[in-house]
Design a protein around this nucleic acid. Sequence first.
DNA 1: TATATTTATCGTAATATTGCAATATTATAT
DNA 2: ATATAATATTGCAATATTACGATAAATATA
Lengths: 110, 110
Amino acid sequence: MGATKTDQFTDKQNEIAVLAKALGHPARVAIIDYLLKVDACICGDIVNELPLAQPTVSQHLKELKNAGLIKGNIEGTAICYCIDEKVWSKLQSYFTGIALKIEKKKANCC
Amino acid sequence: MGATKTDQFTDKQNEIAVLAKALGHPARVAIIDYLLKVDACICGDIVNELPLAQPTVSQHLKELKNAGLIKGNIEGTAICYCIDEKVWSKLQSYFTGIALKIEKKKANCC
DNA sequence: TATATTTATCGTAATATTGCAATATTATAT
DNA sequence: ATATAATATTGCAATATTACGATAAATATA
């Protein structure tokens, strides 16, 4: 007991859950914020931008990368982290879809 | 050690993280899916729709409620769960905002 | 009041996450 | 080759999550 029953849910449900979970920590939201703010792939500065030790930041970056939210390219001794564009449109359409469904009912609701 | 440093991040970052974390489990995504599918507030059936024991489902419902993603009204011996509309537009605009920012750059990126 | 029904809470075990110091790895520069 | 810089990995302690059986609480109905 204690292990998520991934196989009992649909691929789509698991995919959204993985992406949402990756964003489910303020440090990781902050990393995304920063990557968007500097409007470029950023090499290095991320650790200095966060109130956490270097290994902790590295771990959060790894989780964001595993989920597919960012990607990292090696640039000499530094690593260049970028927003990975692909999945973000999935998230946008997921939440836009929900917002549209919510718009359309209103009636049946308590 | 081991406790999230919530106070080191902005309210906005923490808010998104809380909402994302609440959706960071396939069972909770499935609950949202179901509430949207039946297109109404649903009293009762949720446990039967999920491959998990009743206490587990109850716990997931509680987490969704704590995050503000759903709300529950007592209806006699049953409880009526609904999508809570407020926060979903926040999520939509958060992800739409990101998608727009991603559209606008493309150039500076590796 | 007694019984059935529905949902919540408690207790507990298994697993996962968070954070950091210490260490290792990788690439550049000297 | 050696030193320097940047990032990753390891190991560990604290905390949180996940799941479920057992039990409690609340309401309806006989």
